[in-house]
Amino acid sequence: MRNVNKMKLLLLADSETERLEITEMLKNIDYIHLAGDSIDENKTWESLERATADILLMGSCFNGSRYAFAEKVSKQFPHTSIIMVETELLEETMHNALFAGAKDVLIKPIDPEKLMNSIYRIHQLQERTAVTKAEAPQKKLRKSELGQVYTVFSTKGGVGKTFVSINLAASLAKNPEKRVVLVDLDLDFGNAALALNLYPKFTITDIIDDIRHMDSDLIESYLIPHESGIKVLPANLQPNMNDFINAEHIHVILESLRESFDYVIVDMPGRFVETIMPALALADQLLVITTPELSAVRNIKVLLVTLKDLNFPQSKIRIVLNKEDLRGEIKKNDVETTLNKKVDASIGLDYHRVLSSLNRGVPLVYEYPKNTLSKNFEKMCAKFIQDELLKA
């Protein structure tokens, strides 16, 4: 550890006692420069404005009131990695911390060794990112530092989640200047590779063996190219292999892909699973898929309530209406009224061509580019890209 460059760390503790305890711990970590310690958000913000820190170690406060502050820091100072300190290990607190932008979560009382390991892991990630950029000038530069993560989700089966994921990826890949990767995180029943007529040599499990050495270059060697221009990271062929995958693995994988791809499309499972929660936390846009069916719309309404309870940013949610039948009983307006949320994109209905494209392993937007559904995918992509530009 002697050769590690000192990292600039700011501490925002929950109490004076905690501040003193943690500063004493940090004295024993020789690769840390404590640039400031406080229990006051305003003082910490002033310190960040004077000179951005590498790490902000902060408590969530007893009532979780500091999540908003963490989210503000992660947006304003993206180079500062946040380590959140929680009072207890609960699924809700983990979600809140990740959605607020935390890179890692520690539980009180803080174990000095776990604190040291957390800081060192973040240091390694930052060093690896810097080396990758220095050694790979041939990679195309993007307007934004990291690629956009489009997470495709629904807790209702049969709504066409994988179909939307595949065609969204293929539609974005029509721009030759953009690099697109499709990640199948439906670890138990993922069939994105099958729907693209691909026979995986590697799956997500193979990456885990190299996870400690993972970077944007190494992960690319595990991806499968498709004729549409996208690259694919398949789910496991054997669900029992998923026992070896955890949330930290998924976080590292997605972060590595964001470094070299303009768009990372994530096909999620049809339920909340702790392992794949980083795909929600890292999502720039969360595409919630529904169909104009009463059961599907009601299911999505419950999902939206759950996301709100988890403090997921509502501004990131996009409602996508698949299989819209203009002659059907349930119209887009009905869906919007039930959900109390506008439909951001409508795909349409064409059973014959959709089934043909899935059976042939060719995205509909690639095989039938002039089809109405393909045009709708193009409109959806244009709208979402424009939304991101307006945010920037």
Rank of each mutant, 00 (worst) to 15 (best):
R271I: 04
R271D: 00
R271G: 03
F272L: 12
F272C: 11
F272M: 10
V273D: 13
V273N: 07
E274H: 06
E274T: 15
E274P: 11
E274A: 14
T275I: 04
T275Q: 10
I276Q: 02
I276T: 11
I276P: 03
I276H: 01
I276E: 01
I276N: 02
M277Y: 04
M277R: 01
A279Y: 03
L280S: 01
L280T: 02
L280D: 00
L280I: 10
A281N: 07
A281T: 03
L282V: 04
L282G: 02
A283K: 10
D284K: 02
D284L: 04
Q285M: 08
L286W: 08
L286K: 06
L286M: 08
L286Y: 07
L287S: 02
V288F: 09
I289T: 08
I289S: 05
T290I: 11
T291C: 13
T291D: 03
P292N: 12
E293C: 09
E293P: 11
L294R: 00
S295K: 10
S295C: 12
A296H: 14
A296P: 15
A296R: 14
A296L: 15
V297S: 03
V297C: 06
V297Y: 08
V297F: 08
V297W: 09
V297I: 15
R298M: 14
R298V: 13
R298F: 12
R298L: 15
N299I: 09
N299W: 00
I300M: 09
I300W: 08
K301H: 06
K301Y: 00
V302E: 13
V302T: 14
V302Y: 07
V302D: 12
V302R: 14
V302M: 14
L303E: 11
L303K: 02
L303M: 14
L303Y: 03
L303W: 02
L304V: 12
L304K: 09
V305W: 05
V305T: 15
